[in-house]
Simulated scan of single mutants.
Amino acid sequence: MKRTLQGLSSLLVLLFIVGSVSFAQDAKTAITNAYNAAQEKATAGSYEEAIKEFEDVYEDAEEAGLADIQELVVGQLPRIYSAKASEAYKVFQANQSLETIDAAIEAFQDAQNAATEYGESSIAAQMANNIPQLYYVKSLVQFRQEDLEGASATLDLAIAANSNYAQAYFQKAIVMRNQGKATTDVVAMFDQAITLADMYGQGQVATRATNQAVQTLLSAGAQTVQDNQLTRGIDLLTRAAGYETDEADVFFRLAEAYNKRSLYNDAVTNAQKALELESGGVADKAKIYFELGFAYQMQNNKDAACSAMKNASYGQFRDSANHKMEFELKCPGTSGS
């Protein structure tokens, strides 16, 4: 009887072991099949479904102690998240809406988080590098929609994510200018873009930022001179000239301001510089010659003044130049001489 009980006990243990092995094998088969099904979803571009199914496979494999399948899932998920993010950006490119760029940003953030969680540092870094650019793109959409406050806030996010992002500083300056922010603050933002662009070899961005800084200072300086705030106007225009610009209008406006300040030597110097840079025809140069002629006139240099006024006698400056030559300077060849 004792031997019979011992034999029965051994049989039960054997049956339990066989049953456990069979159950484990069935579980591995089911999880493997689920893995393959998730892979098919990913290949078909059904990324959302694939991610959900792979995450379920990971949990089931962890419960079943199938570390090899877990490793396979870890190798797949970050790449599928990345593919989903790329697809989201393609959707944005097709319609350029705020909703789709927001969806793309969220998808890239999810991909970064997944890659970090599963130890794929290269994918995580790639996603992180894309996010500031996506914020920049979003700001352009907002700018086109005249949502300047929103564009500014989004650019702040781009800069916070990448403090060396020259293009974001450039666009921030553009937005600030359209918001009517102080000229000095706008130009400071352009200067930051120039500094970073030069540092990282982004010549095109540096050139655009330089040109826009000059135009900002020129516009503000010209208006300030027109308002007879001459010291401030000259300061702004001198800053514009400091960018080694080839913008003739900067030096013309300086000549104009210096004439108003009765600083005729400076007016002559800047007018001559403007003439060197002006590539237009006689009508474009007329306004510069007029300022040059006036400066010479106030220096009592009649010959030089008459010569300059003769060249100013075109377009809208024709009558004013002719009046000076005939009635004030009494230049040779005029009825007043």
Rank of each mutant, 00 (worst) to 15 (best):
L8T: 07
L8N: 04
S22D: 11
K28M: 06
A38H: 14
A44S: 05
I51L: 03
V57K: 07
V57D: 00
A67G: 09
Q70S: 12
V73A: 09
V73Y: 07
R79Y: 10
I80H: 04
A83D: 13
F92L: 04
A104Q: 10
E106K: 15
A111P: 12
N113G: 11
A114V: 05
T116H: 11
A128W: 10
Y136R: 04
Q142N: 12
F143H: 14
A151Q: 04
A151T: 07
L155E: 01
L157H: 04
L157Y: 02
N162W: 08
S163K: 09
N164W: 10
Q167Y: 07
A173E: 01
N178P: 03
G180E: 00
D185I: 02
M189K: 06
M189T: 10
D191H: 00
G201F: 11
Q202M: 14
G203H: 11
V214D: 01
T216N: 02
T216Y: 03
S219K: 14
G221L: 15
I234R: 07
T245M: 08
F251V: 11
E256S: 09
E256K: 10
A257N: 01
R261V: 15
N265H: 13
V268T: 13
K273S: 09
E276T: 11
S279H: 05
A283T: 15
Y289C: 09
Q297T: 03
C306I: 09
S307V: 15
G315Y: 02
Q316E: 12
K330P: 00
C331W: 01
G333Q: 01
G336E: 00
